[in-house]
Each structure stands twice: as structure tokens, then as C-alpha cells.
Write a protein that binds this DNA or RNA. Structure first.
Lengths: 246, 246
DNA sequence: CGACGTATTGACTCGGCTCAAAACCTGTGG
DNA sequence: CCACAGGTTTTGAGCCGAGTCAATACGTCG
């Protein structure tokens, strides 16, 4: 499971860290410190990285693949808090929470992750002002996503939430037709959007009637983004090319 | 409207600032700097402090009263993101967002607020490491509340959300009976919990059947917290005396 | 080809929303 | 002290969106 970290991979790790918001604007020697402590690992689908209330040893940066963050109740029900992909990080909030994870994390599409010790981040955030500021920026980002989530759950119906989800997968500046692949199982998209898969299936049909999209398996063809945003975004306080929510 | 800030009020402002998480653990001269820049003002119900996308000049600390944070869509629908009271602050997230508010704020119960220039906070966060760390702590707090919100909306039904709301108004360590006053209009509690007031009314009746509480107007008598938490918290991943969500 | 997991469809139930009417409060002025 | 006006809350009837459970279709991999 554990990958040997070759020097070229170390290189990639470094360049990913460079672009990582957590370290943006920090000195090269901090970046080097992190790049050195960084371990690349490949994970298969369904692998659980950690659970809510687990002691937090690592935080992770995603090189590729998809991860879901979730919480579980005693009676077995699950909320999907977010799904993350390349360039995003998770687990880092534990530095502020007595080193305990406040959510679980699970691989949903085969992924390569870089993991770093929470203790290193904690120490660095405490000592290095720029890193603390970047961490603030990351937190603000997360908050924006969560605020959107709350608004979406209270104001948009199932079809609108799906439309919104599709829009956020698109490049907002393409003119004309967009074709995209759904990034993971439809049942997970459903959970991510706070609905059951049966509802997802029916709501997607409704969305097809209201807009002009067509769906074959995991492939979605979107002739015009405006048609979707017209239907979807009226029930949301963001305006279309909703920044930072992708 | 604007209150003269007498020296005794300046004193109160200082002591409130002292306990404020945003400034916890910072030097006295920073606190003094903030206390000096701080303006006390009293506001009546329904006063709008700022709207989403307004340029952010001030952030606020609540001395007393209740505030709601909200977002509004073009077609007039509103989401209540949170309601805040004594000791909590809001608007401060604007320092990370190009000095623009990402939500509106409105007085819901007559309030005394201390307001401080965003520019001062921004400058201080950029220059002072301890303040940046406290700000991180504040953000983590907000995130926890929001995560709870999302979980609540997806997993709990209307009655359970009300039960959960009541529990968070109680002191979790009182043995025996608790009596409490609802802090603001029932219609606002409803909105806060993501439901219509009619639904709130009916769901409260259902909660009365399932637990042993009684309600007269804004007064709620709760013979036992366990009866509510047993009914409510099974659908949530927090366990009862849910920390930090009050 | 068959088997397994994923996705869709159908029939039914139920929670929460809508619209409208009644009941309840609270404050005001006669 | 009562009557009345305004807002807030509750109740009623009906509807609709989403959940449930079960059966069927689809896809993919051995």
C-alpha cells in the first residue's frame, strides 16, 4: 500500500505543496520542510482514512482522486459533509480541536494523497505567522462551501441542487456545449446533495425536462450553461459563476 | 441612536473584549487599542446592520440582545444562517473576503453592540500572530456550528431540530427541572431551524407528545433534559452536552 | 454467459409546505 | 376597565416533494 517516494515524486509533492493554499505565500524553506515530511500514498476505493473522534495524526493533501468527508450517527445514518479532489486538503482542522478529527474521511475514487503530521502543521501554524494566515484563508474557503451547503439544503429542491452540482463541475467560461463525466457514483452524488439515490434519479429526469441536458450513464452533455443556471440559481443567493465553490 | 460612550461603558467594553475569543490571549495593549477604537451602540428590533455584498466597514461584538445572520435570494427567499447573542462576534470574516460581507445581519431583539473598524482588525491580524491564532479559533467555532447545521438539516426532522434547539438553550448540568424563555419570536426560531412557522407550531406539539415538556407562550418547562436528548440526539452524531454549539 | 453491484422505475406513505381562517397577545386609547 | 387594532401563533384542509420498499433494468467484470 505504502508507496516508495522516489525523488521525482518528491518533486511532484513539492510542486503540489507550492500551489496549496495552506502554504501559499510562505518561505521556500517552510515548503521544503513540509515537502520532506510529506509521504505519498495510493489508496483504493472505500478505504477509510480516519473516523470522527479518532486521534488526529495526519492531515492530507489530494494529488488525485476523490475523498468524502462524513459524519455518522449511532443509528447508522450518514451525512456527507463534502467531497474533495486534487489540490484540496483535509484533516487540518484538527490542529484546533485537541488533535481529534471532527469528521470521518473515506476514499471514493482511487486516490493519491500526500500526508503530513498534524504535529508539524500545528507547530508551524503556532510559530509561523504567514502559515497561520494561509490557514485562515483555507478556513474561510471551507466556511463558504458550508454556507452554500446550508443555503442549498434549505432553499433548493432536489433537481435544482443537482443542476447546481453540475454547474460547479463545469468551466464557467466555455461557450457552447460542455460534456462532462460524473466524478463518482450517482448514489454518492445523491448523498452529497442530501437526498436518496431514488430521488436523485427522478430529480435528474425532471432536470432533463426543465433544461436541455442529456445523460448517458456517467456522461452528461450540457448544451448551454445558462439553461441550467436559469433554472437552478434563482433559488440561491450566489450568482452564477459561483466563485470558490468548485 | 448613537450612544455617547461614557468611561464606565468604555470599561464594560474593555471587559467584554477581554473575554472575547477574538482577543483571547493577546497583550493588554492590543486589547486597549481595540477598546479605544470601540463604539457602543444600541439598536432597535428589525434594524439591518448590513446586507450581503455590502462593503464591510465594521465588525461587531454583541454586549446584549440577539442578531440574525442571513442570506437572501433574488426571488425574496431568506435563509437564516445563524442567530447570535452576548459575547459572540460577527462580520469579522470580511477581513478575508475583499472587505465585503458574505451575509446580512439584522437585529432581532433590542441589542447593544460594540463595533470596530474592519481595517483595524485586518491590520492587527496581519501584524499580530496571537490575534491571527485567535481568529483561527473563532473560525473553527463557526465551522463547528455550520457542520452541525448541515447535519441537523439532513438527518433530523422538525421536532428533533426543535428539541435540539431547546437543549442548546439549557445549562446541561442542571439536575431536575429547567424553565426557560424562548429568546426570540417563534417564527424566527422556525426560520433558524429551516422550517415554516406553521410547521414549527405543529412540530412543537409533536415534541410535547414525545417528551414531557410544557409550553405557555414563550415559556418552556423542561422536567428532564434526558427525555429530550433521548428523542432528539439519536439522529445526530454529536452526543448530548454538545459542546460549543450554544 | 452469468453474477454482482449500481441505477431506475413503480406504488405507496408521510413530512412539511401552502393558503386561508381562527385564536391568541400586547399595547393603545377611550 | 374594556374595546379594538395589530401582530403573532395556532389550526385546518389539501397538495406535493421526497422517502420507503420492492421489483426490474443496466453495466461491467470474471
Amino acid at each position: 500500500m505504502r508507496m516508495a517516494v522516489s525523488s521525482s515524486e518528491q518533486q511532484t509533492a513539492f510542486s503540489l505543496l507550492e500551489r496549496q493554499s495552506l502554504l501559499q505565500g510562505t518561505d521556500d524553506n517552510i515548503k521544503a520542510l513540509f515537502a520532506n515530511a510529506c509521504q505519498a500514498q495510493e489508496y483504493e476505493r472505500d478505504k477509510i482514512l480516519f473516523l470522527q473522534d479518532d486521534p488526529a495524526e495526519w492531515f492530507y493533501i489530494i494529488a488525485s482522486g476523490w475523498i468524502k468527508l462524513f459524519r455518522e450517527t449511532m443509528d447508522g445514518h450518514e451525512t456527507v459533509l463534502d467531497t474533495l479532489t486534487t489540490g484540496q486538503s483535509f484533516g487540518e482542522i484538527a490542529v484546533l480541536e485537541d488533535d481529534t478529527h471532527t469528521y470521518g474521511a473515506c476514499i471514493v475514487e482511487k486516490a493519491v494523497l500526500y500526508r503530513l503530521p498534524i504535529s508539524l502543521l500545528k507547530k508551524t501554524v503556532e510559530e509561523n505567522h504567514k502559515v497561520a494566515l494561509s490557514m485562515l484563508q483555507t478556513m474561510a474557503q471551507h466556511r463558504k462551501r458550508q454556507t452554500h451547503e446550508i443555503e442549498s439544503l434549505t432553499l433548493q429542491n432536489a433537481s435544482q441542487r443537482i443542476g447546481c452540482f453540475l454547474l460547479r463541475l463545469c468551466d464557467p467560461f466555455t461557450e457552447g456545449e460542455t460534456t462532462l463525466q460524473l466524478p463518482y457514483d450517482k448514489s454518492l452524488i445523491a448523498a452529497r446533495l442530501g437526498m436518496k439515490s431514488e430521488t436523485f434519479s427522478r430529480a435528474l429526469n425532471k432536470l432533463k425536462e426543465h433544461t436541455d441536458i442529456s445523460v448517458q450513464g456517467a456522461k452528461v452533455i450540457i448544451p448551454s450553461l445558462d439553461a441550467i443556471s436559469g433554472y437552478t440559481c434563482s433559488a440561491c443567493s450566489n450568482e452564477f459563476p459561483c466563485e470558490d465553490l468548485h
